[in-house]
């Protein structure tokens, strides 16, 4: 798996954009079709992980990703509390769809960040 393989790198080069489009589609269409934040985030992190197959190099700033992830968690906690508990959802019913899309996006990016951090940490920091 560590040797460079032309076949894998060319194939993954074709598949990469499809990964991104499919992941974003699952995230943004979570409220009309099956799927949602978690599944879309897992697809996006599968993209990061399959990058390891062609180029096993640690060029991702892990510390920054962790900070981003903590900020996203804060937003995930804050958004439903500010929107649902304050009864905004009954007062302004128009805002319901933007709320769903926003929450799905936040959850999706948080899951993508988290799973990539777990995987990269495991691969590069766990020596024999």
């Amino acid at each position: 798996m560590n040797e460079h393989s032309d076949l894998t790198s060319t194939t993954l080069g074709f598949i990469y954009p499809l990964f991104i489009i499919y992941g974003l589609y699952i995230i943004f269409n979570g409220h009309i079709s099956p799927g949602g934040g978690f599944q879309g985030g897992a697809v996006l992190s599968a993209m990061f992980i399959s990058k390891y197959l062609i180029l096993p190099l640690l060029d991702t700033p892990l510390a920054k990703i962790q900070t981003v992830e903590k900020l996203l968690l804060l937003l995930i906690v804050a958004t439903p509390i500010l929107f649902l508990l304050t009864r905004f959802n009954t007062a302004y019913a128009v805002l319901n769809t933007p709320y769903l899309i926003l929450m799905n996006t936040l959850i999706g990016f948080k899951v993508a960040c988290g799973m990539s951090v777990i995987f990269l940490r495991f691969v590069f920091y766990e020596m024999q």
Binding site: I32, V77, L84, V117
Partner: peptide, 30 residues
């Protein structure tokens, strides 16, 4: 909730505490 997908309606509106603590659980595992 203006959501066609009932699953999304449940986990983002009716039962949003579940979602919040699931996100927290992912952070703890990291």
């Amino acid at each position: 909730t203006a959501s066609v997908n009932v699953v999304t309606a449940i986990y983002l509106n009716y039962r949003y505490y579940d979602t919040i603590f699931e996100a927290l659980m992912l952070l703890f595992s990291i």
